[in-house]
């Protein structure tokens, strides 16, 4: 079963971090991704560029971002393969983002069958 973990947090926090703090945060994410790989659960994952670079398309009109006033922006994702929702939620709780922002867990609709 595939699940998408959506990582939401205040992206301005990142801008405010010192180089050392950035390295520490990146290190925590690398360790997390490695743990997912060792467990055979990792499919894909990446951080997203700042939300100011986003574009939204709706009824043929393209608009510039950012679109949400909310403090927490979608900042990255992991696509994982685990047995069930309970296991996906366990992995979501281990994600560094769960301590600093929040992680949304979405089952991926299996169209191929």
């Amino acid at each position: 079963m595939n699940y998408l973990l959506l990582l939401y947090q205040d992206e301005n926090l990142w801008e405010k971090k010192s180089e050392d703090e950035k390295a520490e945060t990146m290190g925590a994410y690398f360790s997390y991704a490695d743990a997912l790989r060792e467990a055979g659960a990792h499919i894909d994952g990446a951080p997203l560029e700042h939300s100011s670079t986003s574009k939204r398309v709706r009824t043929n009109r393209v608009q510039d971002g950012p679109f949400a006033d909310a403090k927490e922006q979608l900042g990255g994702y992991f696509l994982i393969d685990v047995d069930n929702l309970d296991s996906a939620l366990e992995w979501a709780a281990r994600c560094p983002c769960a301590s600093t922002g929040h992680v949304e867990v979405r089952p991926v609709w299996n169209i191929g069958g």
Partner: peptide
């Protein structure tokens, strides 16, 4: 590394 990756 693994302990860090699995920490909550």
């Amino acid at each position: 590394d693994r302990a860090i990756g699995l920490a909550e």
